[in-house]
Amino acid sequence: MSASGAAATPEELKQRIEAGIPGASAEVTGDGHHFNAVVSAPAFQGLTRIAQHRLVYDVFGGEVGDRIHALSIQTKAPPSGAAAHSHPESIV
């Protein structure tokens, strides 16, 4: 059960996030060890930030902290209406 030795790439992370979370679109940057992912997905709607980030971490399981040394995440739920940059005040 050895993880593949190949270094992770931003492209790989992007594809896996988009495949793992329905409807997600991701922008990933990184150097093979430290990555930054900006992820937008309808599935985030109504979830707390922690729950949103967990969905992203769950795509990679035990690789985060290991093969993927660090993964910084910003999540956004795509606006349901026209308001582009609204900040929902409460999530209940």
């Binding site: 930030r49 922690i50 980030h53 967990r54 971490y57 035990g62 985060v64 902290g65 660090a70 993964l71």
Partner: peptide, 15 residues
């Protein structure tokens, strides 16, 4: 939660 650091406030995981 897989990464470090982790902050807890009043017993709750914050992020």
């Amino acid at each position: 939660w897989p990464t470090i650091p982790q902050l807890f406030i009043d017993g709750d995981f914050v992020g």
